[in-house]
């Protein structure tokens, strides 16, 4: 995956992605099961209401109309599945050595990118709640900031406690760099 939103930081070098996250694949799997159930709906209806269905399908004009309607329904459900996959795939969090970048995909034509400087991070919390979340190790990460957007949240992240710890380490390293840079600047002006 390439990251077109990376920028040049202190010293003219490009910022480096340290953590790259997407929602746990189980989230997509659950949605896929739903779409699979929707896809089989007309066929289950045919089995349950067999007599009525056979009468309709044998009708010279109603039969083709029903078949075309079922075909459209199946195509629409397939499209919903593909759109759900795209939404899962393109919703990402990237933590670099300078920022946290939250990329949110909205449909085909909408993409929202929010960022938070590591130097403005005040608090990082992680949460793992529920049976599936505990068994499959996914949960929520919440980052409190001093910036315009007060809170960043990313749900369904794999191993949220480990990720929260890594973010804190990056925050500490970035804040240490800024303190040392400031000290050098002050020393230089004296």
């Amino acid at each position: 995956m390439h990251f077109p939103f990376l920028i040049k930081i202190h010293g003219g070098e490009m910022e480096k992605p340290a953590i790259f996250m997407r929602k746990h694949p189980l989230i997509l799997f659950g949605q896929s099961l739903l779409y699979l159930a929707l896809l089989t709906g007309p066929y289950i209806a045919y089995l349950v209401l067999r007599d009525v269905a056979v009468e309709w399908l044998n009708h010279p004009t109603l039969g083709p109309a029903v078949l075309l309607l079922v075909t459209l329904y199946d195509l629409f459900v397939l499209l919903l599945f593909y759109a759900a996959y795209m939404d899962w795939y393109l919703d990402i969090w990237v933590v670099t050595n300078e920022r946290i970048v939250d990329v949110n995909q909205h449909g085909v034509f909408g993409r929202e990118i929010a960022e938070l400087q590591l130097s403005k991070v005040q608090d990082v919390a992680s949460e793992q709640k529920g049976v599936f979340a505990t068994i499959f190790h996914y949960g929520l990460i919440r980052v409190q900031s001093a910036g315009e957007k007060a809170q960043f949240e990313f749900a369904g992240i794999p191993y949220p406690h480990d990720i929260a710890r890594k973010i804190l380490e990056l925050v500490q390293a970035d804040q240490k760099w800024h303190r040392e840079a400031l000290a050098q600047e002050i020393k230089g002006t004296q």
Partner: peptide, 26 residues
């Protein structure tokens, strides 16, 4: 319309670097 939207979704997906799972879904 459905097929066109599917095509636009595919273009959007690969514009941001698709991998094997993207290929499988497509």
């Amino acid at each position: 319309g459905v097929l066109l939207y599917g095509l636009l979704t595919m273009i959007s997906l690969y514009n941001f670097g698709g991998d094997f799972s993207a290929f499988l879904a497509t």
